[in-house]
């Protein structure tokens, strides 16, 4: 569950990234977030991750007001959220397996459990045979799928994705989107920021459209 209550964000440079934005995303919902670049998509995701703090308003995630989450609580909060980045953000000094295992290691899963979960996640994205490879040796689409496996390995309640299909061809993009849909059916709240309108308009999910930091469509609890 994600709720924004009249949230504004002004950066130190004076730019208003979000203006009085309110929205509500149910658990187990898959929602797309779209808008031209600079409309505030990334800022919105960053507020949910507590990578940035809002200037005004309230952000509530899984029932917690994020303004009250500080210090070690931020790390705990992030452990409940999986993130997929446009540029993968994989660590190239270790294998695919170790990349996917990183959040599990941090969360403190047991050794056997980690092995099981990593393989389950890699299996879901179809990369079970690549666990020993270095991510650098993989194609862009494969790297993105490693990123997804890492995001879902600890089975978070919320999955965020920032332009997950940004650099992929249409066939791969559709494949990735199908993965996200499968996670949402399995009970995960999924929020995907993308400007690939052609793709998402076919998928019949709620679309939030941002323009200059304000919501144009799709905000309410409809």
């Amino acid at each position: 569950m994600i709720e924004f209550d009249r949230v504004s964000k002004r950066y130190d440079s004076g730019r208003d990234a979000l203006r009085e934005l309110s929205l509500f995303i149910e658990p187990e919902e898959l929602v797309f977030l779209t808008g031209h670049s600079g409309a505030g998509k990334s800022t919105l995701l960053k507020l949910i991750m507590i990578m940035e703090r809002q200037t005004r308003g309230r952000v509530i995630v899984n029932g917690n007001d994020l303004q009250a989450v500080k210090g070690g609580g931020i790390a705990k909060h992030r452990q409940d959220i999986g993130v997929v980045f446009q540029d993968h953000q994989l660590l190239y000094d270790r294998s695919v397996y170790d990349n996917v295992a990183l959040p599990l290691l941090i969360c403190g899963f047991e050794h056997r459990d980690i092995g099981r979960r990593v393989r389950a996640a890699l299996d879901k994205v179809g990369l079970l045979d690549k666990e020993k490879s270095n991510p650098e040796a993989l194609s862009g689409g494969e790297q993105q799928r490693v990123g997804i496996a890492r995001a879902v390995a600890s089975r978070p309640k919320i999955l965020l994705a920032d332009e997950p299909t940004g650099n992929l061809d249409p066939a791969l993009s559709a494949e990735i989107m199908a993965l996200f849909r499968a996670f949402s059916r399995a009970g995960v709240t999924v929020l995907i920021a993308t400007h690939d309108l052609a793709l998402i308009s076919r998928m019949q999910h709620r679309i939030l459209t941002l323009k200059d930091g304000a919501l144009v469509t799709g905000g309410g609890r409809d």
């Binding site: 990578m51 931020i74 790390a75 705990k76 452990q79 953000q89 660590l91 959040p103 941090i106 890492r150």
Partner: peptide, 16 residues
């Protein structure tokens, strides 16, 4: 920096 950032984003605390 990148590694530190990613590690923090997947839920590591400062001690880690």
């Amino acid at each position: 920096r990148q590694e530190v950032l990613v590690t923090k984003l997947v839920g590591a605390n400062n001690a880690y």
